[in-house]
Design a protein around this nucleic acid. Structure first.
Lengths: 132, 132
DNA sequence: CAGGATCCTCCACGATACTG
DNA sequence: CAGTATCGTGGAGGATCCTG
């Protein structure tokens, strides 16, 4: 990195934008690792516990716009929608996997991290939701 | 990753918490790469364009609590405060550097990313600030 | 020089309800 | 099954003022 340009839109900062939206990396990874690059909406959603429907769809839209995934609709009833990794998306999967892999190799470092005082464990989600 | 636990606090999700606060990774990296692991507050801040004073201090506090950096105060007038990477912090520098390095090696992929429609380039910061 | 306190904006994210 | 619309919340993050 030496004397690299550290300005507003240098590479490092741009990479981080991928992780700015919490679920993007997880969708990328899950789509690749658990669905071999393509999955129907429902199945994909079900493999991401804690992800609300709204953010799920919204994140997918953003990812489609970005060119990370492709959306294919089978106009039947009921509709079947399939999301597929694009080649570009696949490249970012590489990054995501790298980061996740580091996490597994350095679980002890993660354990050593003292939680920030106001650290929020996923407060809510539907995990502990009461029966409607 | 195969059949790893994908639950709320699995390794991947915990790693991402490091990047949850925008500036943590940049401070880690800068402290290491531009200041060899230790720097005074002002100097460190000056090497991070776009970072407001508030977030600078707040992020440093969180990082200190987490055990990523150490804060040493020289109680003189004017005060001199030095922030130093802890061994734990240094391990996370490894992760951050990995990610940033990927960004440099894959600048073309970053370029290929279509901007999300409402994508905000750092709106504000003091980059374009008027004199005053 | 370092940083606390306060006010404000914006948006990621969740919950719920509804459509086809 | 897939998706939209709407509402509400928290907290990241910036600007400004003040202290020692």
């Amino acid at each position: 990195m030496e004397d690299d340009d550290w300005s507003e839109d240098c590479a490092p900062r741009r990479v981080m934008e991928i992780f700015a939206t919490k679920w993007t990396s997880m969708i990328l990874h899950t789509l690749h690792a658990r669905h071999s690059g393509a999955a129907r909406s429902g199945a994909l959603h079900r493999s991401l516990p804690g992800l609300s429907k709204k953010m799920f769809v919204q994140t997918l839209r953003d990812m489609e716009t970005s060119g990370l995934i492709e959306r294919r609709v089978d106009s039947t009833v009921p509709p079947a929608v399939t999301y597929t990794l694009t080649p570009l998306g696949l490249r970012f999967v590489g990054l995501v996997d790298m980061v996740y892999h580091w996490g597994r190799d350095n679980a002890d470092a993660l354990d050593d991290l003292q939680p920030r005082l106001g650290a929020r464990r996923g407060r809510g989600a539907q995990a502990a939701g009461p029966a409607g």
